[in-house]
């Protein structure tokens, strides 16, 4: 892991000093444990702050969009599997041009869910978490414990099928295995197992604590609309209260806007301050997309996204 981080720093410094890119988007160590944050290095000196760890839970592709044209030149970006898939998606949706990004590919170690770690130490303050091989070393005021990383990964990382980047300009480490052996189809739609009559309750139970902060939306590289439907006031598509109907509308529609595009990067879930499992909606939709169209977003730059084309044999059982 440290070797990859070192390679990222060296490469970033080189690219910046040679003037090949104006900015390198990566991660820097957070001020609190397990929260490495997106970092923009503009000089070779700043590049020394870059890091790579199992605590890089954002999706950096999010920062490639909404860049004012011409204001900033070519950028380099640190990308593991899911982030590279999001970049492919953004290229396909004409949000960025392939030649404007230089992709520093990293094999993903699988990201740690900080909540799962904290849950092991109820009511205790964790002051430091370091990586030691396959384990995490968690330290606090009067404790120190080792936890195997594989016990505390994020849900989406267990079922990831593409840990290596799909497009790359320069690799920052050896390619690793592409998955962890988890089966996404088995867990993608947990409420399908419930009786139709029980689902609404399970759904509302999950989103009940939503404070409508939209961190899940803002963390997602797919949500680049200038005015999101939830912010629109004329007409007001979705009420702004925390009433059940408004919260439900927000969650159903946010997920639906990601249909056929979500790479299951988990950034939305990591961002939610309330710990709401927002992937339960997107992963269900993507499972349907795989079943109906045999398509997984961002895997192939050439493939046509199924929801952007009409084919005479499109499944349409739902239309009478």
């Amino acid at each position: 892991m440290e070797a990859v981080a070192q390679k990222i720093r060296e490469t970033a410094a080189k690219l910046l000093s040679e003037g090949k890119v104006d900015c390198v988007i990566g991660y820097a160590q957070g001020t609190v444990p397990m929260r490495d944050y997106p970092y923009f290095a503009y000089t070779p000196e700043e590049a020394q702050n870059l890091t790579w760890s199992p605590f890089c839970c954002n999706n950096l592709a999010n920062f490639l969009i909404r860049r004012p044209k011409g204001e900033i030149g070519k950028v380099a970006i640190v990308a593991q599997g899911c982030v590279s898939r999001s970049i492919v998606g953004l290229i396909k949706e004409n949000q960025i041009a392939r030649e404007d990004v230089y992709i520093l590919g990293v094999p993903s170690p699988g990201m740690v869910d900080r909540r799962k770690v904290q849950d092991r130490f109820p009511l205790k303050t964790i002051t430091e978490v370091t990586v030691d091989g396959e384990d995490l070393v968690v330290k606090g005021k009067d404790f120190e414990e080792r936890i195997p990383q594989k016990e505390v990964r994020r849900d989406n990382c267990y079922t990831c099928v593409q840990r290596n980047p799909v497009i790359v300009d320069e690799m920052m480490g050896e390619e690793g295995p592409s998955d962890w052996g988890g089966n996404i189809d088995a867990v993608a739609a947990p409420w399908e197992k419930l009786e139709p009559g029980e689902r609404w309750e399970a759904f509302i139970d999950e989103v009940d604590s939503c404070i409508r902060c939209y961190a899940c939306r803002d963390a997602c590289p797919l949500c680049y609309c200038h005015v999101c439907f939830v912010d629109e006031a004329m007409p007001q598509w979705c009420g702004k209260t925390q009433d059940e109907a408004d919260v439900a509308t927000f969650h159903i529609l946010r997920a639906f806007h990601c249909a056929g595009r979500c790479t299951d990067c988990g950034a939305c879930e990591s961002a939610c301050p309330q710990g709401i499992k927002v992937r339960r909606f997107t992963s269900k939709i993507e499972k349907d997309i795989r079943e109906l169209y045999d398509y997984s977003p961002g895997m192939d730059l050439e493939a046509t996204p199924p929801l952007s084309v009409y084919r005479p044999n499109d499944p349409q059982e739902f239309i009478k």
Binding site: W191, E192, F203, I252, I319
Partner: peptide, 20 residues
């Protein structure tokens, strides 16, 4: 959309699509 709404517990018979 229909599949998603049924997933969250909206009754199957409540939403209809037709092309006329």
């Amino acid at each position: 959309m229909k599949s998603l709404l049924e997933y969250v517990g909206i009754e199957p018979g409540r939403l209809h699509f037709s092309w006329i």
